[in-house]
């Protein structure tokens, strides 16, 4: 069953057209990635789906209900959750408060259980619960941003460049967790520059170029595609790994 269905999405900033009619869908429990270079329109797509930017045209449906054009807080309440690029945690608040804010729309009674669940996924956050979020390391901040997203009990979790600016080893940890999240049945829409990693985690992917989807397919298909290998994986034609 389709969780998120996007048709003909167009995003413009004044005269600039960042997204030019994107169609994509994420099935329930599926992990899907959007690949593309800088400026291809990946973040614009996610920001628009999250309600931070109004679509110029197109439709967005979550579980069959239209949500295109709703403001961000109403999209969040419908549990289409964005973990934004650059983490965007609440630095001046404690780790615990950040997580509780992630569950802002949930009934008070569910929060303790949700906190316990997030700490199971990210045990490293446990000893830091009382610390100000701004004092965490980059990797911990990304875990916090992911944990904050999980607190919302998302229908679809949208992740914008979760490995950005992290040391390779830390990025590995983050991808391992994303894999766990996807395996737990939460639908994930992952935007990544690290194409290799993204295709290891995701079942399916779209390739976005200049605001249009130029290619889509299963992760295996995309990994084997000459264009993807040339443009995003740094392999020449005929190269073997």
């Amino acid at each position: 069953m389709t969780a998120l269905e996007v048709r003909g999405l167009v995003v413009t900033y004044g005269a600039i057209r960042a997204v030019e009619g994107v169609d994509l869908h994420v099935d329930e429990g599926e992990c899907v990635t959007i690949l593309g270079a800088n400026g291809a329109g990946k973040s614009s797509t996610l920001n628009c789906l999250a309600g931070l930017v109004r679509p110029a045209s197109g439709t967005v449906e979550l579980d069959g209900n239209p949500i295109g054009g709703l403001p961000a807080h109403q999209v969040a309440r419908r549990r289409l959750t964005l973990v934004p690029e650059g983490r965007q945690i609440f630095s001046a608040l404690t780790v615990r408060e950040n997580l509780l804010l992630g569950g802002f729309c949930r009934p008070q009674g569910e929060l303790d259980g949700a906190l316990a669940h997030v700490l199971e996924v990210f045990p490293a956050l446990s000893p830091r619960m009382g610390s100000l979020a701004g004092t965490l390391s980059g990797g911990e901040q990304q875990m916090l941003a992911l944990g904050r997203g999980l607190m919302a009990a998302p229908r679809v979790l949208m992740l914008d460049e979760p490995s950005l600016g992290l040391a390779p080893l830390v990025a590995d940890q983050i991808f391992a967790v994303i894999q766990e999240i996807a395996a737990s049945g939460i639908a994930v829409l992952l935007v990544e520059q690290n194409v290799h990693r993204a295709l290891q985690v995701a079942a399916r992917g779209y390739v976005l170029e200049l605001g249009r989807i130029v290619l889509e397919g299963s992760a295996t298909q995309l990994l084997g595609d000459d264009h993807v290998r040339m443009a995003y994986l740094g392999h020449g034609l005929g190269d073997d790994e």
């Binding site: 807080h73 959750t81 964005l82």
Partner: peptide, 15 residues
């Protein structure tokens, strides 16, 4: 306090 700390991401929490 969330809005004060990060105006941009507060709405993403449903605020």
């Amino acid at each position: 306090r969330a809005i004060a700390a990060n105006t941009r991401s507060a709405p993403l929490m449903g605020i």
